[in-house]
């Protein structure tokens, strides 16, 4: 882990109609850092990931990824103008995302779900993509499911395919948007195991929006508590979970841990 921020939100504003979801958010993630974002629903946590994945635009401020503005481009005179699709395409290559609802492609086998983008987008040969996919399926423990269709798998298995699919693009930053929220309780563990393994064994930068407090505590270098479109409190997991300094954080943790 170096000290150089790979992700930087500088006074970022995001509105949906009259609703302000991100209110001049300042937020930084260092290279290789594993950061968990927790907070009540509607606090803007998923929006942070969706902005990074370029699924949502911003209404103000600047988002920087690896030193380059994400939603802006530097014009010839040095001023920032809104990003073109080509710029977004280039920037997106650094990021990968794991979705709450998995969002696998239902008409493709597990193998093709993982190889399609490396072949079409990165230009890998079918052979290379297949080899990469098989390694990743091994990693997520699904080596024997390559020829199945997503609907033939359990939710936990589907989400593990989702993780393999994102990793196949070799992103520097992996975004997890509530990866276990749509799963039956008994299937949560297998997905968390895979994410935990990635966190411990890879130098990927990881950003995880989650309601799994114990897991967040286990794998994160830092935990951020979001409230009303801002970071209310952040810190090392031991501190934030055992001795939060803000009353609002305390309330939230109490409510979540009691349930």
């Amino acid at each position: 882990m170096t000290d150089e921020p790979i992700i930087k939100f500088d006074k970022v504003i995001k509105r949906f109609g009259d609703l302000t979801v991100l209110n001049e958010l300042d937020f930084e993630v260092k290279k290789g850092e594993k950061v968990s974002i927790i907070g009540p629903s509607g606090s803007g946590k998923s929006t942070v990931l969706r902005i990074l994945m370029t699924l949502e635009g911003i209404n103000g401020g600047v988002v920087t990824v690896n030193g380059e503005p994400l939603w802006h481009e530097k014009g010839p005179d040095g001023t920032l103008k809104p990003a073109s699709e080509a710029h977004l395409h280039k920037m997106r290559a650094q990021l990968g995302m794991v979705f709450q609802q998995f969002n696998l492609f239902p008409h493709m086998t597990v193998l093709r779900n993982i190889t399609e983008a490396p072949v079409k987008v990165l230009g890998l040969s079918k052979q290379e993509a297949r080899q990469r996919a098989e390694e990743l399926l091994e990693l997520v423990g699904l080596a024997d499911q390559a020829q199945k269709y997503p609907h033939q798998l359990s939710g936990g298995q589907q989400q593990r395919v989702g993780i393999a699919r994102a990793l196949a693009m070799r992103p520097n930053i992996l975004l997890f948007d509530e990866p276990t929220s749509a799963l039956d309780p008994e299937l949560v563990g297998e997905v968390l195991n895979v994410i935990g393994k990635l966190a411990h064994e890879h130098d990927l930068t990881m950003l995880l929006v989650t309601h799994e407090m114990r897991f967040a505590r286990e794998i994160s270098d830092r935990v951020c508590f979001f409230d009303q479109g801002r970071i209310r409190e952040e810190g090392a997991p031991e501190e934030l979970f055992t001795d939060p300094s803000e009353e609002r954080t305390r309330e939230f943790l109490q409510a979540v841990l009691d349930s």
């Binding site: 994945m53 370029t54 699924l55 997106r92 995302m97 492609f105």
Partner: peptide, 24 residues
């Protein structure tokens, strides 16, 4: 959701149409 997954994997809109949307 399918469009978002395709975008996250950096498919161009044309690739998304032909490999993700139309087959479904």
């Amino acid at each position: 959701d399918q469009h978002e997954a395709a975008r996250a994997l950096n498919f161009t809109p044309r690739q998304t149409l032909w490999t993700i949307t139309i087959p479904q």
